[in-house]
Structure formats: structure tokens, C-alpha cells
Amino acid sequence: MSKSVIQMEVNGRSVSLEVEPDEMLVDVLRERMGLTGTKVGCREGECGVCSVILNGKLVPSCLIPAMKADGGKILTVEGLEKDGELHPLQKEFLNKAAIQCGFCTPGMLLSAKALLDENPEPTLNEIKIGISGVLCRCTGYRKIIQAIESAAKSVRS
């Protein structure tokens, strides 16, 4: 098994790492870089809690071999906060109490981020589709949707 060196930009910081050919991005983020905000659920791309934004696109990091992310720009939930201040989405999630157990929250936040980056004025239905790739087993979807709606408003104003 031969290791190779990959280069990535994670949350604005450039890193270079030696990875195994069959190491997954989510494990590199969690186990090697200590970015445990990204969660591991099903490892089959069904639950969405491992979602990260890779080169501007929301992807399940459990299905991405680290080698595929070579040269990529990655945003994890840890990178949402700027200079000690929470991202408007994070603030609204707190304001609206859109967090129950918190396990899906990183996936939800990044889904919402990807959605708002592409479409700053999403309709209710577009929000629902935007977060449809993340399962919340506390089933607190309503608050999450409300939080995204008001974050969209605060980003716009």
C-alpha cells in the first residue's frame, strides 16, 4: 500500500497530508485534522451528516476518497465562523432553537450554506429540497426551515 501526498485547502488553511489510497475524506478531516464537527452516520451517502462543501459543491465526505479531494477547497462546519463571530445561519439556528441533539446540525448548516450561496432567496419548497439530503432523527425540521428562512433574510439585508 503506497501512501501519497495530497494538498487541500481546508477552511481557508492550506494543508498537505500523506494519505492511504483508500482513506476517506471524512476520516482525514476527523481523525487526522481533528475537525470532528463533520459527523459520520451511515457511510453510504444516505444520511448526509458528513456533508462538506468541496469546491463550492455540497458533497457527502464519506463517499469521497481523500485522493479525489486533492487540490480541492473544502469548507467544514468549523469554517463557517469568521473572526470569532458565528455565521448568520449558525446564529439563526441558535435563535430559533433549531438544534436538538445536534448530530445533523453540521450537515444542515452546510446544506443551508450551499443553498443560500446558489440561491439567496429560496422558497419554502427550495429550502426543503436543499436540506433533503440530511436526516434529522429528532425530526426537528420545522425549526431548521424557519432558521434558514430568517438567515436568508438577514444575509440579504
Binding site: G45, G48, S51, K57, L58, V59, P60, L63, I64, S111, A114, I129, G130, S132, G133
Partner: peptide
């Protein structure tokens, strides 16, 4: 197809 994540990947 699938979810937004799957459609991106």
C-alpha cells in the same frame, strides 16, 4: 436522483 449531495457527486 438521490439527494442534493448525491446529485453533486
Amino acid at each position: 436522483i438521490g439527494t442534493p449531495q448525491i446529485r453533486n457527486l
